[in-house]
Design a protein around this nucleic acid. Structure first.
Length: 467
DNA sequence: ATGTCC
């Protein structure tokens, strides 16, 4: 064992000496060269795991310090002025969302961005915000509900063939809503995502696996929904003939698992940037070439796959109960970060409430519990970083909706559109959202509308104020 | 968004 072996593993400066010292101690106790090299690699991959004690503790401390220096070098001050970014639907966007996007575009790691017409204020990056960074991922640029996504199943059945009462009982029997809810053990379905090797590669993920296993196929709360409705296709597409179809549309995320991943890494990112300007505190990032950044990337992508698996379970249950196999299916994540080529380099594109809209890619943009949703096809517009809105976007905050909307007006709106609602709350009333038709119109250069979905029987969590 | 502090 000599310095060359150590340097080959990528150790630098004082870490080389410390690694060599530790290697010699291990050799004295009879460890083989390969064992020692594997151990050194493990320490390098996760220095914090070896700080507590043992032969590698000093090396781990030095590696940890080197990591911190990398991080603090990147904690430069904010730019004096935001980088320019384009806005779609300026007239529909409140100033608060603009201000948040301005701060994001002042981060030293930011390279490009865009604001979608459904934009409104969120934590850190606004909802409807798209942000491209270089070698950095921002947990709050993805959002608390990592992998929050949409799925549509078009069923080979005429919309009228499923009665409202039957649709209602299917939703009650096969979906679960509410914070903290999980499936009873006997009702659980297995899914390959629960056997993903990533669960065993981080203590945090290992810890969250049981929660993920019991919550898979559930829908949570807030704006999440599962609904039956009518899909209208005017021209041949989605491998389907034009016509009207019964369809299931769902909005769901990564449940408690994703929320805890988001919380863990947001806290970590903020700790790594103690000197970040206060205005940008919630936009603290993790450099992708550090262990912390890699760990978040792995956990985020697992949460993304898990959220889509959630939808698969929901749709699978409903289709099986009807004895049908979906004739077409569309899905997309709208809270996630992707590696994407932009301006000749690889950037990290965060979409926090934004639909991927690369040229030709299908996506889903829902309206509200009573308004139509749209199947869209992306046009790959560079200035929008190939994105579109993820929905209509709120025009009233939850409190404002509860305080200002009258129950009878919301009921009238639902009755006028023939909506049967299970659960739901005033804070999710259609009147709390921007008009989806306007939001779609403002982004006609970003996506083409492929089909329209009108909800009919809708299930949501019980809100704090009933409708 | 989430059982609202692992």
């Amino acid at each position: 064992m000599n310095g060359k072996h150590i340097q080959k593993l990528g150790f630098e400066k004082r870490a080389i000496k410390l690694a060599l010292d530790a290697a010699n101690l291990r050799e004295d106790t009879g460890a083989s060269r390969q064992e020692i090299l594997d151990e050194l690699q493990a320490v390098q991959n996760n220095p914090t795991g070896y700080l507590a004690g043992g032969v590698y503790a000093e090396l781990a401390a030095e590696l940890h310090e080197q990591d911190q220096k990398v991080v603090s070098r990147q904690s430069a001050a904010l730019r004096a002025t935001p980088l320019p970014y384009r806005v779609w639907g300026e007239d529909l966007i409140d100033p608060g969302a603009h201000d948040q996007m301005d701060v994001a575009m002042r981060l030293p790691v930011s390279r490009a961005g865009a604001l979608m017409p459904d934009a409104h204020v969120g934590y850190g990056l606004p909802i409807g915000g798209v942000l491209a960074t270089e070698n950095a991922v921002i947990p709050y640029g993805v959002g608390v509900d990592i992998g929050c996504s949409m799925m549509l199943s078009v069923l080979p059945m005429a919309p009228g063939a499923l009665g409202t009462d039957e649709a209602r009982s299917l939703l009650i029997k096969h979906t679960r809503f509410g914070a903290g809810v999980a499936f009873e053990k006997r009702d659980r379905l297995d899914h390959e995502v629960l056997h993903d090797p990533a669960w065993k590669e981080q203590p945090l993920l290992r810890h969250l696996h049981p929660k993920a296993a019991e919550q898979i196929g559930t829908s949570g709360s807030g704006n999440h929904f599962v609904e039956f409705g009518t899909l209208t296709l005017k021209a041949p597409d989605l491998d389907l003939e034009p016509g009207e179809y019964l369809a299931v549309l769902s909005h769901s995320g990564s449940r408690g698992f994703g929320a805890q991943v988001a919380g863990h890494f947001t806290t970590l990112a903020q700790k790594l940037h103690p000197n970040l300007d206060r205005a940008a505190q919630k936009l603290a990032w993790l450099p992708l070439d550090t262990h912390e950044g890699e760990a978040y990337w792995q956990a985020m992508n697992l949460a993304g796959r898990y959220a889509l698996a959630n939808h698969e379970q929901i749709h699978g249950r409903l289709a099986r109960a009807l004895g049908l196999k979906p004739a077409a299916q569309v899905s997309n994540s709208h809270n996630l970060a992707w590696k994407q080529q932009h301006g000749g380099r690889e950037l990290i594109v965060h979409r926090k409430g934004a639909t991927p809209a690369e040229a030709g890619r299908l996506g889903l943009i829902p309206g509200s519990m009573a308004d139509p949703g749209f199947v869209v096809r992306g046009r790959g517009v560079e200035a929008a970083l190939s994105s579109a809105s993820h929905g209509a976007g709120r025009q009233l905050g939850r409190k404002a909706a509860i305080n200002s909307l009258a129950k009878k007006d919301v009921q009238a709106y639902l009755e006028g559109r023939g909506i049967t609602l299970i659960g739901g709350g005033i804070d999710e009333a259609p009147q709390a959202y921007k008009r989806i038709e306007e939001v779609i119109a403002r982004q006609s250069d970003l996506v083409d509308v492929v089909a329209e979905f009108q909800p009919r029987v809708v299930r949501m969590d019980t809100g704090s104020e009933d409708i």
